[in-house]
């Protein structure tokens, strides 16, 4: 009973923030803006769930993300341009998995430092993406995408229904996967590698699998983004790791990361929230140039806050002791 009431009290400030956000959304944004923001939020929740796998589950910051997001966009744009929008989605998944696998092999088999391994893949992808797309960017205005294909069935709500459906599907698959034997081995690998090897699990293989899944999801986000915005851009991946991290961190204000469900929910909720923060910033007339700066600041604040809290409370304690 008392733990329950404590839980309720701890939720009050969060509920207030949520209520204020809902009021803001209703007063500041038009309905079409809200729907657009939700769509983009669902697309970017795929990115956040991918980064959740590498950053939270495996506990390794994977910098290949910036490259694989653009890889997904490039593969998707090329195939959509040539009339295969559905194939484009699956091909981008495969391409992302392949790129993630390369990072995984670099880190585990060739003992490259994790951060450097990601940077190497990302840098290589800068050229590869240009090679795939054949140009820095490509417009898809005249081509059919998965969204225009479904237009006849889903009418005006095609974009939001389709992006929500893909998000939900990925959410369910990830939730199930992380409960399987392989999924549990993956989680343990990020949690305690000693224990994993002592339990006859090949931690190298697990890391490679983890990177493949993470980057497949990031690439999927890039592919969906290209089709929904009708442009494939080889530069679309810049800063995506930090954007994804910011999303996860925002989401974790509302959902703890300690269970699989709430960890994934935090990624989705955070990605959507992040899009709404951007939408507000834009509606307030803030230049979109500053959006990446904003995400960098969010990440720094979230990571620094516990340290600042500690040193402030430590300082107050010290002052009190001196006063006495």
């Amino acid at each position: 009973m008392s733990t329950n009431s404590k839980k309720i009290i701890s939720w009050i400030p969060r509920a207030l923030v949520l209520a204020a956000a809902l009021v803001l959304i209703n007063t500041q944004l038009y309905q079409s803006q809200i729907i657009d923001t939700l769509e983009m939020g669902f697309v970017f929740s795929l990115l956040a769930m991918g980064i959740f796998i590498s950053f939270r589950i495996l506990d390794i910051p994977d910098l290949s993300v910036d490259g694989t997001f653009a890889l997904g966009a490039s593969v998707s744009a090329l195939l959509t341009y040539n009339g295969h929008p559905v194939l484009a989605i699956f091909a981008s998944l495969a391409a992302g998995a392949l790129a993630g696998g390369v990072t995984g092999v670099l880190i585990t088999k060739f003992k490259v430092q994790p951060i450097l391994g990601g940077i190497i893949t990302m840098t290589a992808l800068l050229s590869i993406n240009l090679l795939i797309l054949g140009a820095p960017s490509r417009s898809l205005w005249k081509n059919n995408t998965i969204f225009t294909l479904m237009q006849s069935v889903l009418k005006d709500y095609t974009d939001i229904i389709l992006s929500a459906a893909v998000m939900l599907l990925v959410f369910i698959i990830m939730f199930w996967f992380l409960k399987t034997q392989i999924g549990m081995s993956l989680r343990a690998t990020g949690d305690n590698e000693f224990m994993v090897r002592a339990s006859s699990i090949n931690s190298d293989t697990m890391k490679i699998i983890g990177f493949m899944i993470a980057n497949a999801l990031v690439s999927l986000a890039g592919a969906m983004n290209a089709q929904i915005t009708k442009t494939g851009d080889t530069n679309s991946g810049t800063g995506m790791l930090v954007v994804g991290l910011a999303s996860i961190i925002i989401g974790e204000i509302f959902f703890s990361r300690h269970t699989i469900f709430s960890g994934l929910a935090a990624a989705v909720f955070g990605a959507v929230s992040y899009r709404f923060i951007l939408a507000f910033a834009i509606s307030l007339g803030i230049d979109t140039k500053f959006t990446k700066l904003l995400s960098a600041v969010i990440v720094v604040i979230a990571i620094a806050l516990p340290v600042i809290k500690k040193s402030v409370s430590g300082g107050i304690k010290l002052l009190k002791e001196r006063g006495e």
Binding site: M184, S185, R187, A188, D191, N192, F194, M195, H258
Partner: peptide, 17 residues
Amino acid sequence: LKGTAPNMTIEENLGLA
């Protein structure tokens, strides 16, 4: 601390073993 995965539950740890 080396023998178990701290963020996983008791039953999940046993499941792995």
